[in-house]
Design a protein around this nucleic acid. Structure first.
Lengths: 145, 145
DNA sequence: ATTATATTTCTATGTTACTAGAATTATCGT
DNA sequence: ACGATAATTCTAGTAACATAGAAATATAAT
């Protein structure tokens, strides 16, 4: 749980998210610091701190190859993070936000599109949302009143 | 993109993540501030700031009902955030981190389990990872060398 | 050994975020 | 109109984070 918070806040920063996305695309071999530095044009010391933050969160792992240190995405942890969010939200989304239970289309979330085809709405969830949705159904309108 | 960063960093904070999780479980009706306050025992002003941060990020929406203001999860944005992470990572995971392409089991990520059954490995991805994985296959070992 | 390159740690500074009491605004009930 | 309750904004102190130059460390090449 604390780990998830660290990971979310690690990704919740422009430069670190850019690093992470770069490394996702770099694949399992990753990139050495110098490559990242040249691509993102970040000063070495700053980059090093960001890499440390991402590594301590578990999202990256580092391996030395001679003078170079390659940072790569730790896929297992990335999957765990997505699962964490999915389990907290996606299950609810399937139950409550499936715009067309017949086709499963509408959410447009590849993470959900498969599962949404068979509405997984539990008895409990259905009852709860029924009661709740009876009164108001906003689901939009963003700003504070 | 900037929005995604705001959302990730909004969730990357203990108290705000707790609020978000509470509201996920509260369903579409959400909870009014006072309910949240009593459950999480947060001082009003602090809570108000956190709710504002989450709302500005788009993850929550607020609706007034008399004296009460109900905050609820904005499922659409939550889905978008998960999709964002999924598209950046999950596609790569399917291609590179499917431990058993035959059964699709192993990752244990409900977000991926469906899709993993049909390995989506592209020609490009296969070639790239082949070349890369030839040398080293760490995929573990967390700390900096 | 010496020099060059890769990366990190040290150090410092500015900025942003968190926290929470007090004052304020808004709405309801009487 | 008035008091009570819900929630936000004001204000301010502290802590944490981001940035980056300079010094230090580690490895490789000559």
């Amino acid at each position: 749980m604390k780990r998830r918070i660290e990971q979310l806040s690690a990704l919740g920063q422009e430069e670190r998210l850019a690093i992470f996305r770069l490394l996702v695309r770099a694949g399992p071999q990753g990139n050495c610091v110098d490559q990242i530095k040249r691509r993102l044009k970040t000063p070495g010391s700053t980059l090093s701190h960001h890499l440390d933050t991402l590594t301590r969160s578990g999202l990256l792992s580092a391996r030395r190859a001679g003078r170079f240190i390659h940072y790569a995405v730790n896929w297992r942890e990335a999957a765990n993070l997505i699962r964490f969010l999915t389990e907290d939200c996606c299950a609810e989304m399937h139950a409550r936000f499936s715009p067309d239970p017949q086709t499963g289309a509408g959410v447009g979330n590849p993470c959900c599109s498969q599962a949404a085809k068979r509405p997984r709405r539990t008895r409990r969830a259905a009852a709860a949302s029924e009661k709740a949705e009876a009164r108001t159904s906003s689901e939009n309108g963003n700003r504070r009143p």
